[in-house]
Amino acid sequence: MIRDITLGQYVPGNGIVHKADPRVKIILLIAFITLIFCAFNFVSLAVIAAAVMIIILLSDVSLKLYFKSLKVIIVIILITSILNIFYGTGTPIWQFGILKITMSGIYRAVFVSVRIVLLILISSCLTFTTSPTDLTDALERLMKPLKVFHIKVHEIAMMMTIALRFVPTLLEETDKIMSAQKARGADMESGGLIKKVKAMTPVLIPLFVSAFRRAYDLAMAMECRCYQGGDGRTRMKSLHIKKSDVFCIIFAVVILTGVVLCDIFIAPII
């Protein structure tokens, strides 16, 4: 049940997107997200959508998984687009009391839902194709300049790595404890919300206890191997910008300029 969540899950693969430098991927993701919100007319939106589709098709991850991650947020898309329909300005084409639908409202709704879908697709693409360790490694590198402000970048990255590493472990542990309590006759399925929450106590307490125990053990193990933070630490896998990464960047720059040009020369719709 808990395992069915696909949002933010790494899918091992061998495609171009998998092999791309994680730093490049993160920066491009940020660029694309900004871009998605900078598209003010249908042409620029279509350009971005096309670019996102190309990336997804190249990503060596089955389209089913992308659909699955969209399923999770379908309610959010519906609610926001319905709200947006009624918030347009201009002459109404349909009116009922204070509710009115205008052309601009419909445009807004379309824009918002397309934006959310693209947002989810492109960020899923990052997490599907990049292992958590690569991701935190890249983040650590990218945040390095923050050291000037005495921010402990390495420690933050290490915490993220550890947290991500223990998600599956804790899920497994939850499963085990739930089975053990069910074997003692715990009833977790029936009853109302309050009863269900109360029924979780026998699962949550052992889970917390074991999480703390694991944390102590891990801290001990790290200290035994003389871990002392990021100063003077070298990496086993160092990141290098490859030829293919340069192509990625060029591709992104072309899209970027395309969208900006579209925005400049075509009148905005919203």
Binding site: E173, K176, I177, S179, A180, Q181, A183, R184, T201, P202, V203, I205, P206, V209, S210
Partner: peptide, 9 residues
């Protein structure tokens, strides 16, 4: 279960 002490709460 195995290691049943982890179910105490």
């Amino acid at each position: 279960f195995q290691y049943p002490e982890y179910q105490l709460f």
